[in-house]
């Protein structure tokens, strides 16, 4: 796998939005294909399932769904490719993967318990930190 990825070249700019779109799907598929390998090399079987990782990758892609400029999409694709390469080449360590894609941005403390939906702003801030 890593051998294939290594040979990847930066493609020329997408001519139209349509082309950028196809490229994005291509990229996402490549991510999905590398997931079993990633699970293996980072020993992630006991913390996450492939489908969870897939939805994490999809979420990353969807984050930028509103972008229409093909140049920007190309740039983001390049960055995504770089990240994927880093992961597949094991330039990262296990805690990076766990921190970024398994636990996610909200951290270990999950703030969304059903009880404090109706909590005041003060209490919500209180739970997250002493400041602000």
């Amino acid at each position: 796998m890593s051998q294939i990825l290594k040979r990847l070249k930066v493609p020329p700019n997408s001519a139209s939005l349509e082309e950028a779109r196809t490229r994005t799907f291509e990229f996402f598929r490549m991510c999905c294909r590398s997931i079993p390998h990633v699970m293996e090399i980072y020993n992630l079987h006991d913390v996450v399932t492939p489908s969870q990782l897939r939805s994490a990758a999809a979420a990353e892609v969807r984050k930028n769904a509103n972008i229409t400029n093909p140049k920007v999409i190309d740039m983001l694709l390049f960055k995504g490719m770089e990240e994927l390469m880093n992961i597949v080449n094991q330039s990262k360590q296990r805690h990076h993967i766990v921190g970024q894609y398994v636990v996610g941005n909200q951290g270990l403390v999950q703030d969304v318990s059903a009880k404090d939906r109706d909590a005041s702003n003060f209490l919500k801030k209180f739970y997250s930190s002493n400041y602000s």
């Binding site: 909590a119 005041s120 702003n121 003060f122 209490l123 209180f126 739970y127 002493n130």
Partner: peptide, 23 residues
């Protein structure tokens, strides 16, 4: 994970259902 004293009391009051009127 420490908090300022008055904030703890204020938060506790809300959790206990007797929220203090200042935040």
């Amino acid at each position: 994970d420490a908090r300022d004293d008055w904030k703890i009391v204020r938060a506790l009051s809300e959790v206990a259902g007797v929220a203090l009127p200042y935040d």
